[in-house]
Design a protein around this nucleic acid. Structure first.
Lengths: 335, 335
DNA sequence: CTGTTAGCGCTTTCAA
DNA sequence: TTGAAAGCGCTAACAG
């Protein structure tokens, strides 16, 4: 069933049918109705490939999701999908493995699919800097900063990592904690982790609190298991910590698991803080004290950024979203 | 940049370039190399739309995900994506809102995109029975049963709900529980919930344990918040329960949150069981006693089912995957 | 082994 | 307001 068949059945030309299907002007009301009836009769839908081939495909926005395992990205994706319902664009979702080079992938797919823009959900511009620099369509990276990539097509929007880390540090110190362990990502490979660590450290230093990186910082994967393993190492290296600052809720939950297994009570014996503010963080016991990423804002404004680049050729932009502190029950006052 | 440009630069016909690009036989080694060089030089990639238009798009398998919020579907999607790397098909992922009619959507998109098969991740065949019956390509529903839909194109693979529920019921009873609350889905609209409830009930009855549906069953959404709210209602209606059987880990976690807030200790005061065996279930405190869905098996075999329908025109099939019981720490022995 | 060519289904001029 | 016709970039059948 093609547009031709519909045209034949109506006894009109394909042009007319096309116009009706696309809601374009230049068709008499009577004719429009007649054609629409046949279309409805067969539940006819245009062949997207032919349509896009002809139109040079300028309606698709590619959404590259880096690793489905992150709960944060999921809620982000959900928000974005919702926004697309009102948009005159089609969202094409592609899920990449965690270890793939998302920028390179984006470059390749760009030639093949000619999207009008690309949304990166998650992604590590610091790792694939060179490939990110090659992007030739408006792009936006949501949930991480892309300052360091020198590409006028690439915008980014992310939480104020530094603010969140500093605030948490101040909060812990205010509550009397001075022996604090930190669980985060690999500092060499993750700019994000570096930012969060540095801000945290700076606050400690400003309070004259020493920090022995070798012992008190443990690198881990951003996962439950990563957090659990890291906590073990941390406890072994620094048995007398009173608090653990983690760079992700999943890590915090993993760490709390380890603490429970070793007989520690959170927050009575050891306090724990998270980062992200996932839904689960307010349902686990104890509720996590954490920094919430406003996923709806991230999604909304990130998309807006991209659309502005597309429609108004606005220059790229790097936005920082303010963090929100959630005081749960996982930090105790040890003063 | 099109295949024509490449051909021109090489001084050959488009046919030759096409053959090289698609790795087809019938090109001399020398020519192949020469063409490949130009292709590499420009990082040329075929226009998918043109290719698919011509080929009548028989390479795409559509993956319809019903609601991104379910952690279970996420891990399922991840497994499936991984499998596709070895497959000669392209996966097209579409995420639908929770309240959309996935079967109707599938029918529509079928006309437009002509996928060779469709994977439903999540979905409620009992609700959209009529639309599921209309599907005209091989389809597989993963994570729910589609027995009730009379459609020879539709296969399904899901966990043995009944077995899982019965086993949990026996386990609770063995541990001395007789006043058990149940938190599940709306029985009127969810066949899945009905199955799980019925099996549970049957075991209770076989042990001569009474169950007052009005008071002891609370319907809720499959979410943290749903579980939390339902638990409140349950506690109000039946203050003397010693255990709560939930139909999802997220519900169980939500329920445990409520229990903690009301001062109950799990499992000392009240036991709780989950369903799904999500990763988080083994990181929360206490670890959940639950029924694990083997997502890798579901994904693997579900996809195999679909491929068999596609390549060998195998008849549809409804498979039940055995459940796995995970004994966590959320059930106490009250004998 | 290689080049030429006829469409795939659609949109969009251009003429009528 | 309508229909006819020219491609969009590609594959595959056919001819050389």
């Amino acid at each position: 069933m093609t547009i031709k068949d519909i045209a034949k059945e109506c006894g009109v030309g394909v042009g007319t049918v096309s116009r009706v299907l696309n809601g374009q002007a230049g068709v008499s009301e009577a004719m429009r109705e007649k054609v629409q009836q046949v279309i409805d009769k067969y539940d006819f839908v245009l062949n997207q490939n032919a349509k896009l081939l002809k139109e040079q495909e300028r309606h698709t926005i590619l959404i590259l999701v880096k690793g489905m395992s992150s709960i944060l990205l999921n809620s982000l994706l959900e928000c974005i999908q919702k926004r697309f319902e009102e948009l005159p664009y089609t969202a094409d979702v592609v899920v990449l493995d965690e270890y793939e080079n998302e920028a390179q992938y984006a470059c390749r797919i760009f030639y093949a699919r000619k999207p009008i823009g690309i949304v990166f959900l998650g992604g590590t511009p610091d790792v694939y800097k060179d490939d990110f620099a090659k992007l030739k369509v408006p792009c936006v990276l949501i949930s991480n900063q892309a300052h360091s990539v020198n590409n006028s097509n690439l915008s980014s929007i992310s939480i104020d990592d530094c603010g969140g880390s500093s605030f948490t540090a101040e909060f812990l110190i205010k509550n009397g904690h001075r022996q604090i362990g930190v669980i985060g990502g690999e500092l060499e490979s993750s700019e994000l982790s570096r930012r969060r660590y540095q801000s945290f450290l700076t606050v400690l230093e400003s309070h004259g609190i020493p920090f022995d990186f070798e012992k008190q910082y443990v690198a881990a994967k951003y996962s439950f298991e990563g957090g659990a393993q890291a906590a073990k190492k941390l406890l072994d290296q620094v048995p007398n910590i009173s608090a653990i600052f983690t760079m992700a809720d999943v890590m915090a939950i993993g760490a709390m698991r380890t603490l429970a297994d070793r007989g520690y009570s959170v927050p009575r014996d050891i306090s724990v803080t998270g980062f992200d503010g996932l839904e689960i963080s307010q349902y686990c016991t104890p509720r996590l004290t954490t920094i919430r990423q406003k996923t709806d804002l991230l999604a909304e404004q990130g998309l807006a950024l991209l659309l502005k680049s597309i429609t108004e050729k606005a220059p790229n932009n790097h936005i920082l979203i303010p963090f929100e502190f959630i005081e749960g029950e996982s930090v105790s006052n040890v003063r």
